[in-house]
């Protein structure tokens, strides 16, 4: 699970081009949107693409996405729950 979270952080930093942010700077419980990393709606679209590309997981319900993208922990839990 920890390895998954580290990979996830690295993928997010690369996909969202988060300059000056290291994986160690992102707390697993830190909110990704609003405060924390300050991500926005375009980043949410990028995260949807990232989950489908890297993990083969689709998020079709926007309400579901709101829950899943709260933090690294929630995304990792979603991947673990749905991995094939």
């Amino acid at each position: 699970m920890e390895e998954l979270k580290d990979n996830l952080k690295a993928a997010i930093i690369e996909a969202l081009n988060l300059e000056d942010v290291n994986a160690a700077d992102i707390d697993n419980d830190e909110p990704l949107f609003g405060g924390g990393l300050g991500l926005d709606s375009i980043d949410a679209l990028e995260l949807i693409v990232l989950l489908e590309k890297n993990y083969g997981l689709k998020i079709e319900n926007p309400e579901e996405g709101r829950e899943i993208f709260q933090s690294i922990n929630t995304i990792a839990a979603f991947i673990e729950r749905n991995k094939k």
């Binding site: 996909a15 375009i42 679209l45 990028e46 693409v49 489908e52 590309k53």
Partner: peptide, 9 residues
């Protein structure tokens, strides 16, 4: 298929 929205925008 899956395209990055940022590059498009």
């Amino acid at each position: 298929g899956l395209l990055s929205p940022t590059a498009f925008i």
